[in-house]
Computed example of a mutant assay.
Amino acid sequence: MVNVGIVGGSGYTGVQLVALLIRHPEVTVRWVTSRKFEGQPFYETFGALRSLTNLSFVRFTPELLDEVDVVFTAVPHGQAMDIVAVIAGHGKRVIDLSADFRFQDVAAYEQAYQHHTAPELAKKAIYGLPELFFGEIQEADLVGNPGCYPTSAILAAAPLIREGGWNARIPLIVDSKSGVSGAGREPNLTTHFPEADEGLMPYKVLTHRHQPEIAAIIAGAGGEGEVYFVPHLVPMNRGIISTAYIPLKEAMELSEVHGMYETFYAGKPFVRVLPPGKAPSTHHVRGSNFCDVGLTLSQDGKTLVAMTAIDNLIKGASGQAVQNMNIMMGFEETLGLEQPPLFP
């Protein structure tokens, strides 16, 4: 049995972590922290878990680390790096859900975010996308859990990139649409109901902080070229659809591309490659750790349109974090994550 702590449990990723981990057959959640709700029963903040857990929020102190083997950190970027340094200093394994440990290139992180106070740790952290880095995650002490948009974008493009099929003289374009829970639990004007409902809005066009994360992993997979990323806010609670437009070095048949993706994702239990020409839907992954991948080609066979659907709070955050923990601890990758999507 693995003893687990969660630093920062009062947001959407925090409640999803608790919901997944209290059902995990090999995990005991020892504590969950929140400064704002210290001393309050967890179910008073998140009524959905009433009668399912007796946890109460506590304030984080280093002494808590004596009780656990693994720590999930689910606090905003900039706050995580100092906390993770303390946890790592106590010899505990960490899965960080902020952006602070997604970049081994510290300069790239600092350009997109802010000054990094634990650069040596960042250089050692493993990017926690199991479909690409399973072996590295097995040996890792610190995993930087990917962002929600990058998860969907990279899984759309990775098989073709790894096979060297992208004509990198032409930019790869990723168009993504996300539900409002991706903005977090703190209210703001953009996600206020009258502002978001019945509307569709692109935002941070070509300037979103997830763009360099996507570009870095694609470059590491062999794709040395420009990546254009355009996110959109859609009026739904959860889910991401990403569509990647990938120029090909040479014309291909859809059956050839489809076979490439099926081969690449064979044995990767949470990626479902749909039949050729079929598009994914957020309805079919909601509440699950699945990523559905749809593929189609332009008429001339020279542009691949690769589409993915994920639940931004599960495969895009907490579910993927549990998947990473399973790999790090030698458990079955799917343990505690077998729940089917919620439909309708």
Rank of each mutant, 00 (worst) to 15 (best):
G5C: 08
G8C: 05
L20I: 14
R30M: 10
R30N: 05
T33N: 01
S34F: 03
F37T: 02
F42S: 04
Y43S: 15
T45D: 02
A48V: 14
A48K: 05
S51E: 15
S51L: 06
T53F: 03
F57S: 02
F60G: 00
F60Y: 14
T61F: 00
P62Y: 03
L65W: 06
A74R: 05
Q79K: 07
A80S: 15
I83M: 08
V84N: 03
I87M: 09
A88N: 01
G89A: 12
I95P: 04
D96I: 10
L97Y: 07
R102A: 00
F103N: 02
D105L: 06
V106R: 01
Y109R: 03
Y109P: 01
A112F: 00
H115D: 07
P119V: 06
P119R: 02
K124I: 03
Y127C: 07
F134A: 00
E139G: 00
V143L: 03
G144F: 09
N145F: 05
T151N: 05
S152T: 11
R162T: 10
G164F: 12
I170G: 00
L172R: 12
L172K: 13
L172C: 11
I173S: 12
S176G: 13
A183Y: 14
E186K: 12
L189I: 11
P202G: 07
R209D: 00
P212H: 02
E213F: 00
I217K: 04
I218L: 15
G223P: 11
E224W: 06
G225D: 05
M236L: 12
R238Q: 14
A244I: 09
P247W: 10
L248Y: 12
K249G: 13
S255G: 13
Y261S: 09
F270W: 09
R272N: 11
L274I: 12
P275Y: 12
P276K: 13
K278D: 10
T282I: 15
T282C: 09
H283G: 04
S288H: 08
S288G: 07
S298T: 15
S298K: 12
Q299G: 14
Q299T: 13
G301K: 13
D311T: 08
I314T: 11
A317I: 10
V322D: 06
N324Q: 05
N324V: 13
G330W: 11
E333T: 14
L335M: 14
G336V: 11
P340G: 01
P341D: 06
L342M: 15
P344S: 08
